[in-house]
Simulated scan of single mutants.
Amino acid sequence: MQSHYFIAVPLPEILKQEIKEHLMKDQQRETLSFKRWVHQEDYHITLAFLGACSKEQLETIIKQGKELIRSWIPFSLALSEFGLFGQENKPRIFWLGVQEQPILYRYREQLYQLCQSVGFQLDRKAFSPHITLARQWTGADRFQLEELCSDISSKWVVNEIVLYKSVLTNEPKYHRVETFELK
């Protein structure tokens, strides 16, 4: 199986733990029946999914990514609300969003342009920054998003971006290949 790569905003350890503890409260109430839960160490906000890549592409994106991201200033993000992708009654993705932050969109666009110049074919869907929490609803009843507590309101400063490699046979699945420090 070929490895896939992506570039993402990592979450601080304390925030990962807070999210996990919050979700465990709901899981213990058995209100969240999903086939697969994302390991807390794999929580992140994807900026660019690269997929499979050649050694040359990887070396180039690391070199040029370092230069680009070094020019970025650190910025704050704050968690917002839970959401879904897919059918509302049987979602395929359960996620936690972040509050609107214009600088995140600007940086993501710069990164996209760089990745495309290196030869990556990237998804052109509208950017919806989120942290994937679970996949594939398996509950017998309709998923009740409105019943979830939304008292996670943490804020953090982003001062690094990470190039990850997916290792689907491991848990956690995502492993740091390179860390890009902001200015």
Results as ranks from 00 to 15, higher is better:
115 C>A: 15
58 L>W: 04
124 R>F: 08
105 Y>Q: 12
77 L>F: 05
101 Q>P: 05
53 C>H: 05
24 M>L: 15
48 A>K: 12
123 D>E: 15
88 E>F: 07
16 K>R: 14
3 S>Q: 07
127 F>Q: 03
97 G>P: 00
135 R>C: 01
97 G>R: 05
119 G>I: 13
171 E>Q: 14
21 E>H: 13
103 I>C: 04
77 L>V: 12
33 S>C: 14
149 C>L: 13
121 Q>K: 07
181 E>M: 14
167 V>P: 01
18 E>L: 12
62 I>K: 09
45 I>C: 02
23 L>M: 11
107 Y>D: 01
29 R>I: 07
74 P>S: 09
26 D>P: 00
169 T>H: 06
115 C>S: 15
59 E>N: 10
8 A>V: 12
149 C>A: 15
65 G>L: 08
119 G>D: 09
34 F>P: 00
160 E>Q: 14
120 F>H: 04
57 Q>H: 13
19 I>T: 01
61 I>Q: 01
75 F>M: 13
114 L>H: 07
151 D>A: 04
179 T>A: 08
85 F>L: 04
181 E>D: 09
159 N>H: 12
99 Q>S: 12
28 Q>M: 13
148 L>G: 02
165 K>F: 00
166 S>P: 05
155 K>Q: 12
74 P>R: 10
5 Y>W: 11
167 V>R: 05
175 H>A: 04
119 G>V: 11
57 Q>R: 11
142 R>L: 10
84 L>T: 10
172 P>I: 10
67 E>S: 13
152 I>K: 04
17 Q>P: 02
49 F>T: 06
17 Q>M: 09
117 S>M: 08
162 V>M: 02
6 F>D: 01
34 F>G: 03
13 E>I: 12
76 S>V: 06
142 R>G: 04
167 V>Y: 03
107 Y>R: 09
28 Q>S: 12
108 R>H: 10
22 H>Y: 07
169 T>F: 06
144 Q>W: 10
82 F>R: 01
150 S>F: 11
139 G>W: 03
90 K>Y: 00
65 G>K: 02
176 R>F: 09
11 L>F: 03
114 L>F: 09
168 L>C: 06
49 F>V: 08
34 F>H: 06
121 Q>N: 11
99 Q>C: 10
145 L>F: 06
87 Q>K: 14
135 R>I: 02
23 L>N: 00
17 Q>F: 07
91 P>V: 01
120 F>S: 06
122 L>G: 09
36 R>T: 15
28 Q>T: 14
18 E>I: 09
140 A>H: 07
162 V>H: 03
157 V>R: 03
120 F>M: 07
25 K>G: 10
29 R>Q: 14
66 K>D: 15
120 F>V: 08
16 K>E: 09
27 Q>N: 13
126 A>H: 04
52 A>W: 07
134 A>Q: 00
92 R>W: 05
65 G>A: 08
76 S>R: 13
117 S>C: 06
12 P>V: 01
78 A>F: 01
127 F>M: 05
72 W>H: 05
